[in-house]
């Protein structure tokens, strides 16, 4: 399972999956380099999971091509399968087996040598801190423990590319933090490529080298998250002052102030690199003798980016009745 040097981890060209008239994935093209953490963001039903399903050889594309680790997902499915690890959105562990038995079976299916598998099981179970539960039946595990075990299993055969489909959905903040740190660690230590779908924007922002926003089966934005945020035109500064008009006049002349607006006792400015501009602005205000009560800085988040490109916040998407039911069922299953 040696990685072929110089080959992109993933190359997708014109990939399409249709279910009847609906194009769940519509002519998607993208390239992911080796060792990258790549985020796929989008509301539910946007086509994230369908896209991943095609990349991991579970669904056949209607049109287009995809290569994973240099292998064609249709013509060399077995080679692709050997190269990848997957952590599914819903649990895919055998609940009747122990953690060890789950890992052992996985090793056998991935053609691992017995001794090698034994050693790797010890290694991955330690990484996810479940050593003391190794011989317990999975049914007795909490949601967080199951997820961690699944991540361990996905890594057991040393994949070159790891797919994580909503790895932290329905988990408590502490467990999410935990999982984030594993993901970072894996990339640093093993240099593996990680493709992660999520609809937690903070998660994507923190983890991913690049993110793609996908909506209605199409990629509508793809870049580093900082670049996506910058593309919105900079930070927002809110300045509380009794003389907002005077201040607006003074600041409005500055070349780097994009937009300045006043409304009842406060002035909002759109500027780039807001944190560096505050001292300069304060200096100007002091020189003009204008009192400033407070200044607050709002950096655009991926949520703002998402809103900009899709015209809706991801939260609006989340509360559709179907989804909230699904989330409730999932969280009930995963707690306890």
């Amino acid at each position: 399972m040696q990685r072929t040097e110089g080959v992109n981890a993933i190359e997708v060209e014109g990939l399409t999956k249709r279910f009847g008239a609906l194009a769940a994935v519509d002519n998607v093209s993208l390239t992911i380099s080796n060792g990258e953490i790549f985020g796929l963001l989008g509301p539910n039903g946007a086509g994230k999971t369908t896209l991943i399903s095609m990349l991991v050889t579970m669904k056949r594309p209607t049109a287009g091509h995809a290569k994973v680790n240099g292998y064609d997902v249709q013509k060399q499915a077995d080679k692709v399968r050997e190269s990848i690890g997957i952590v599914f959105q819903d649990s895919s562990l055998d609940e009747e087996l122990t953690a060890y038995e789950n890992l052992e079976l996985h090793g056998a299916m991935y053609n691992m040598d017995r001794k090698e598998a034994e050693a790797r099981i010890k290694e991955v179970i330690k990484m996810v801190e479940l050593e003391d539960r190794l011989h317990h039946i999975v049914k007795t595990f909490s949601g967080g423990m199951r997820r961690r075990l699944e991540i361990a299993r996905g890594l057991l055969h040393c994949p070159d590319v790891l797919f994580l489909d909503e790895p932290t959905i329905g988990l408590d903040p502490q467990t999410r933090q935990h999982i984030w740190s594993y993901i970072k660690k894996m990339q640093k230590e093993r240099g593996i490529t990680i493709v992660i779908t999520t609809h937690y924007m903070d998660e994507a922002d923190l983890l991913c080298d690049r993110v793609a926003i996908i909506d209605h089966g199409k990629i509508i934005a793809l870049d580093k998250s900082s670049a996506l945020k910058d593309s919105l035109g900079g930070d927002i500064l809110s300045i509380e002052t009794p003389c907002s008009d005077k201040l607006k006049e003074a600041f409005g002349k500055l070349a780097w102030v994009g937009e300045a607006k006043c409304h009842d006792g406060s002035l909002t400015l759109r500027v780039t690199k807001g944190e560096q501009r505050i001292p300069v602005l304060m200096e100007i205000a002091r020189k003009k003798g204008i009192a400033v009560e407070s200044v607050s800085l709002h950096k655009p988040t991926l949520d703002d980016v998402f809103l900009h490109y899709t015209g809706k916040t991801i939260r609006e998407e989340e509360v559709s009745p179907n989804e909230s039911l699904r989330a409730r069922v999932a969280s009930r299953r995963r707690s306890g």
Binding site: V56, T57, M58, D78, R81, E82, I84, I86, F88, S92, L93, D94, H106, M109, Y110, N111, R153
Partner: peptide, 8 residues
């Protein structure tokens, strides 16, 4: 089943 479906 998914686990077995994507195994080589």
């Amino acid at each position: 089943l998914k686990e077995t479906m994507v195994a080589p």
